[in-house]
Computed example of a mutant assay.
Amino acid sequence: MNIHTAVIKNYLLILNFLFVLQLSGFQELQALQKATAKKDVVVLLHGLGRGKSIMEPLKKRLQDAGFFVINIGYKSIDRTPEQIMNDVSVQINAIRVDSNQTIHFAGHSLGGLVIRAYLDSNRVKNLGRVVLIGSPNKGTPFVDYFRDAWWLKLVGPAAASLGTDTKSFPRSLRPPYYPVGIIAGVSKTFDNEDFIPGEDDGVVPVESTKVEGMKDF
């Protein structure tokens, strides 16, 4: 065997090895996609001034329960609700699900309102349930009380839009046409009875988390 034949033989062996390696990786990817296609999808959205990392514990719990979870992040400081909606809509629209998959949504605080706004404008095929966690569906008197505070203005227009007036972001949303459940928390840490009536989580009254047509509370 001359040197040229040996080089060609070794080259062909390398190509064959790379092909087998690529095929193995492709088969693994196919297996992952096939397994994923059998799972229902849950889309998570965090709240105002937070990041997607805050939803990671919930993501892990849902994954352990057998769901395929997509944790969406978005900028909320110094942004309008419309800007946030545009950002989130692009990410949700990029999600592809099979005909046998159901897609659910869960959002904390502002994230829940963004989900409602998205579903107001978009009909999602195979839509399942929506869970709103501490979302100010009727607005919050916290924002009404501190509307002129410098720090609220610093947070931006999305925060300022969460009041209880009829022109607020929450009040602009239509009643849900889909199954929605509400989770509300209660905190005794803050002394805010002067401007938030009843039980609340420090920012949002329990009563304000309720929404017309809710299935669970």
Score class of each variant (00 low, 15 high):
F26K: 05
F67V: 01
I182C: 11
V155S: 04
E56I: 13
E28M: 11
L127K: 10
G134T: 12
L154F: 14
V97L: 13
F17V: 07
A6K: 13
R50F: 03
F68A: 00
A106P: 06
L13S: 13
Y145K: 08
G156Q: 00
V124P: 00
G163N: 09
H46G: 08
I183S: 12
V69H: 01
V20Y: 05
E212L: 13
L110S: 05
S121G: 10
G66K: 04
Y11W: 04
F67T: 01
K52L: 05
D40S: 12
A184Y: 09
L119H: 00
N93V: 06
V203E: 02
Q22W: 13
H104E: 02
T164D: 00
Q83A: 05
R79M: 12
S187W: 03
K167M: 14
N10Y: 11
P176D: 10
L110F: 15
M1Q: 08
N192A: 08
I92G: 00
P179C: 05
I3R: 14
S53E: 14
E56A: 10
G47Q: 11
I3T: 15
S99G: 04
I196N: 01
D98P: 12
R79Q: 15
Y74H: 14
I8H: 11
K60C: 11
K34D: 13
K167G: 07
K9D: 07
I133M: 14
A6Y: 07
I72L: 15
F169H: 10
V211M: 08
K9F: 13
N2S: 14
M214W: 05
V97N: 15
T209V: 11
A160S: 10
D216Q: 07
K59T: 04
F217D: 15
A37D: 04
L45S: 11
T164M: 03
D87V: 06
A158M: 10
V69P: 01
L113F: 04
P179A: 07
A160Y: 02
S53V: 08
R96G: 06
L127R: 09
K188Y: 01
T140D: 00
I14A: 12
I133W: 04
F67I: 01
P157I: 04
I183K: 12
P170R: 02
S208H: 03
A65T: 08
Y177H: 15
S99C: 03
G73T: 08
L48T: 04
T209S: 10
